[in-house]
């Protein structure tokens, strides 16, 4: 007997909202990517708690796929950031406003 399922879900929801706040409000491109990572991690936590609650292994399998997607996303995202930094010399999201009318 560990804890109620709802407490684990609450922890996951709080983590998810922290990640969302980080992704939405920071100006640094790297911090935006970090926020997405926190959100994916919170989703994984919810999956593992659900897997324990219903005693099915599917939830844990999905966390493996979330890890895969997170790794791929970070690799491409960081490559894009490096590319953008090479072209413009900045990682400030506010300065990428060339298309603004």
């Amino acid at each position: 007997m560990i804890v109620p399922f709802s407490h684990v879900l609450l922890l996951a929801v709080l983590l998810f909202f922290m990640g969302a706040a980080c992704a939405v409000s920071r100006r640094n491109l790297i911090m935006i990517l970090v926020g997405v990572e926190i959100m994916l991690n919170a989703a994984g936590l919810a999956f593992i708690a659900a897997s324990l609650k219903w005693q099915q292994l599917d939830g844990q399998i999905f966390v493996i796929f979330i890890l895969t997607v997170a790794a791929a996303e970070v690799a491409v995202g960081l490559a894009l950031i490096v590319y953008a930094h090479r072209r413009t010399g900045s990682v400030d999201a506010n300065r990428y406003s060339l298309l603004k009318g």
């Binding site: 007997m1 560990i2 804890v3 399922f5 709802s6 879900l9 708690a49 897997s51 005693q55």
Partner: peptide
Amino acid sequence: GHALLPTLTA
């Protein structure tokens, strides 16, 4: 949601 989670290990 208030039921306690069991201690199991996969």
